[in-house]
Amino acid sequence: MRVLTCADTGVLVEVADLSEVIALRAALAARPVPGVTDVVPAARTVLLRVAPGTNTDAVAAAVTALSLDGAERAGDGGTVTIPVTYDGEDLADVAALTGLTPAEVVRAHTSATWTVAFCGFAPGFGYMVGDDPRLHVPRRSEARTRVPAGSVALAGEFAGVYPRSSPGGWRLIGRTDARVWDLDRDPPGLLRPGVRVRFTEAA
């Protein structure tokens, strides 16, 4: 763990890998550090935004003292199931890149257990990591200018569901009617850090 500072407004904690990101986020949720207003997990870091006047050295010390072992490595946010129609425009490309058939891609995607590691890109866009490295594919060389809301996609080590229509460079394998972002719901995001996700094939 390496602790960096962002002037007087943030403490950026760099960890070894995504599983430590997930563990640190869970540890911070279980034992909040005084002065921290927001926790922003990302791929290899967790940013702690602090209120003005907070002693960032004290925050850094409190974070360093947190234990990342034990139950907090597990997802702590419950499980959601997302039904998917696997007819994405890039399903054939993903099959070619992984050496699987399209049906095997679907089987791998629905068999894996996914965990939301962090959100970013847009409100409610959860970066999910799975336990099947066969599904790691590079993002498209050229981004689409418009990806429809509900698109289910893969890129790098992640799976994602587009919360609203936006540009995007991930490989589309299917679509879902599940509303992953709904401001009339509390909390509005379905795919929150720590949530476990299972994808199923929609009937």
């Binding site: 407004t9 990302a42 940013l47 970013g120």
Partner: peptide
């Protein structure tokens, strides 16, 4: 990608910084 704070001087590949203000991207 990593978390950002307001006030960050982020440097894209063209080498000219962007000073992030209130509506900066989260990461």
């Amino acid at each position: 990608s990593e978390g950002m704070v307001a006030g960050s001087l982020q440097v894209p590949p063209n080498g000219e910084p962007v000073l992030f203000l209130a509506d900066h991207p989260v990461t």
